[in-house]
Design a protein around this nucleic acid. Structure first.
Lengths: 210, 210
DNA sequence: AAGGCTGGATAGTTGAACTATCCACTAGGA
DNA sequence: TCCTAGTGGATAGTTCAACTATCCAGCCTT
């Protein structure tokens, strides 16, 4: 398959495909001569993944590249690779290192994760993201209660356990595992977010018509 | 309070505050002379809300303005106002109007919402967002099953019903209701997203150590 | 042998969210 | 009273991300 066919099949314009090639999101095609390269179904598949992450997940190009680089480095084991993917999907807030309020919130987050018995790296960016969210809620005058957080955490775990990690083929090839993980995280994350807003609208209608 | 104090209290630089004033995100201060205006605690509060939506929620400035305009238009009733806020928080995908696959997915979405008994406007952008997500999942070779979607939908409803809409003071002033809704939607949405990723990491660790 | 693609390189565009500069003016202290 | 830092308002510039456009030499088909 040549680049123009890749373009028509995927709906992505040629200059954009070239851009993804430059950025290392898409592997080079197999060079057949100085001015010709051959692309396969793997390229088409990768291209669809890129567009899905960009359009539905709003994942930045740089993060996508990070994931792809982790997959292509054969030395990393599967768990580390999945970790890298997860960390790339996070939106790191600036650390606010020397802030009293921040430090206390961060300790609360660490305690919560420990209490839940979750096995999460102390370096996981999610800890910082959660800290930022809690600090922000407090500053807005609506601090989250421990009880609320526990409900959210357990709900998240039940979805992750029963419907997401269960889908991931850990015994298959490594690239398929990461790809599945990323798709699950991003797409079902989006789906859940939309469902939540729809549910809120429905509740609002019910309450305000009474 | 003058603009410089607003800046130091909120941590937002003066030129940025001026930008928010220009963009209509922040109401003008009370003019006390040709070159002086007075800002109150409401401005500080608003500024914190703006930063929360931008930094934690990644809500675009244009969407924030839409919400604010709806609140300030006294003619709209509360339900419409909350609707406007919700719709502003959505990320409208382009409609793909004349696409067979899209149309079928859209019908499935409409059927699902009807089956759930949810009261959602047929114009709600969430319907399009969900359609896009399902089409994308199918194109990636991992179509969502009805059973999975139902679980996500019911889980979302239970959080929305018990922990989000229950918090909203429908009987108070209208601006407080919208503000609370937006904060709940965005901040707890973020919190849930982070919990989900942390839960996935924890599950991954558990599975791969066995 | 000619016209259309191709890969590769380089430069330009768009949109969002700021950021910087300028200016006339004025409040508030020396 | 005068001076100066700060103010509001306007306008223009910056940065970053994600493209998009143009150019060019070379091949491949017809």
């Amino acid at each position: 398959m040549r680049i123009s066919q890749l373009s028509t099949e995927s709906g992505v314009p040629i200059p954009t495909i070239k851009y993804y090639l430059r950025e290392g999101l898409l592997p080079q095609g197999e060079q057949t001569s100085a001015t010709r390269a051959e692309y396969g179904p793997a390229h088409l598949r990768r291209l669809r993944l890129i567009r899905a992450l960009l359009e539905v997940g709003r994942v930045p190009v740089a993060a996508i590249r990070t994931v792809i680089e982790a997959v292509e480095d054969e030395r990393t084991d599967v768990h580390t690779m999945l970790g890298t993917a997860h960390y790339a999907l996070a939106s790191r807030p600036e650390p606010h290192a020397d802030d009293e309020e921040w430090t206390r919130a961060r300790e609360a987050v660490d305690r919560l994760i420990a209490d839940l018995g979750w096995r999460v790296s102390p370096l996981a960016p999610g800890r910082d993201e959660l800290t930022q969210t809690l600090v922000t809620l407090a500053r807005l005058g609506m601090p989250a209660t421990d009880a609320d957080l526990l409900v959210y955490a357990r709900t998240a775990m039940s979805l992750a356990h029963d419907h997401e990690m269960a889908k991931i083929p850990f015994d298959g090839p490594r690239d398929v595992a990461v790809e599945t993980l990323v798709i699950c995280t991003v797409m079902y994350g989006k789906a859940f977010d939309v469902f939540r807003r729809l549910a809120q609208e429905s509740e609002s209608a019910r309450i305000l018509e009474a």
